[in-house]
Design a protein around this nucleic acid. Structure first.
Length: 256
DNA sequence: ATGGCGCGCGCAGCGCGA
């Protein structure tokens, strides 16, 4: 099976891109972030016509997550447990034995901001939840926009980015804690080198110059990591007209 | 050189993203 993640930076604007990408790539599950769409405006019918079920947790203007799938979903959660938050950043669904957690981790803005503190608190709560989820769901995929470049090889200019938000030590420690729980970064199961990014700034021709960060991730529980056949960053949609600043990442799991 | 682009909201220009 194929399962992907894509921060679309407004589903209203990017719906044609998502439909085109679904048609070409035929994933079994696609997790979206930054839909920026209220639930009553979610384009359910468009995805039904494309052969996909859709579940979503949205709000006006900001944030918003969704899961598209061939199989009908069972929604388990739409928020972090025990964490007061009006921001829609979490969607957990299951498809039979497979559990999929779609995440839009807070950006953090800058390391000296209140939003950074919120990001670290949010990640601490995610870590607690991850321990429970790994017990409850042996077949767990945790994927989305983590807003963390885990290592310097995931950063085009580590010196310029040092100690900046998305790259700072506390954020990387939070990401590392998830791996210490037993989750595996599926991209790194198959590719060691640098220069592979999932986001490029709209400004300064960053995509053309491949000045990006790898911040969109697919984490796999141990049972799924054993089935990981490939993880691919698809740069193509970043080159389309009026693109999202993120591009899709897809994991292939064998025997599911 | 801290801007640079693109989004929502709403009709100007600001907050936000990363």
């Amino acid at each position: 099976m194929k399962i992907g993640t894509w921060n679309v930076n407004s589903l209203r604007v990017r719906l044609p891109h998502v439909l085109r990408w679904l048609e070409t790539n035929q994933p079994d599950v696609l997790a979206l972030q930054e839909t920026k769409t209220e639930d009553r405006d979610f384009p359910v019918g468009e995805f039904e016509r494309a052969g996909y079920h859709a579940v979503f947790a949205g709000q006006p203007t900001y944030n918003g997550v969704a899961l598209l799938s061939r199989e009908p979903p069972e929604v388990i959660a739409t928020a972090l447990p025990d964490f007061e938050d009006v921001q829609k950043r979490v969607l957990l669904a299951r498809y039979g034995d497979l559990a999929v957690l779609d995440l839009y981790v807070p950006n953090g803005q800058s390391v000296d901001s209140d939003k950074y503190r919120y990001k670290l608190d949010w990640l601490a709560q995610l870590d607690l939840w991850a321990a429970q989820l790994l017990r409850d769901f042996p077949q767990l995929v945790m994927l989305g926009d983590f807003n963390i470049a885990p290592e310097d090889r995931d950063v085009h200019d580590p010196v310029a980015w040092q100690d900046q938000v998305l790259v700072s030590g506390p954020e990387r420690t939070a990401f590392r804690r998830l791996l210490d729980r037993g989750l595996r970064d599926s991209f790194r199961l198959h590719t060691d080198g640098g220069g592979h990014y999932s986001w490029w700034d709209y400004r300064a021709a960053a995509f053309r110059r491949n000045q990006g960060l790898r911040i969109d991730h697919i984490l796999l529980s141990p049972a799924l990591a054993a089935r990981s056949a490939a993880t691919v960053i698809d740069r193509e949609p970043r080159g389309w007209e009026r693109p999202s600043d993120h591009t899709p990442v897809t994991a292939e799991l064998s025997g599911l």
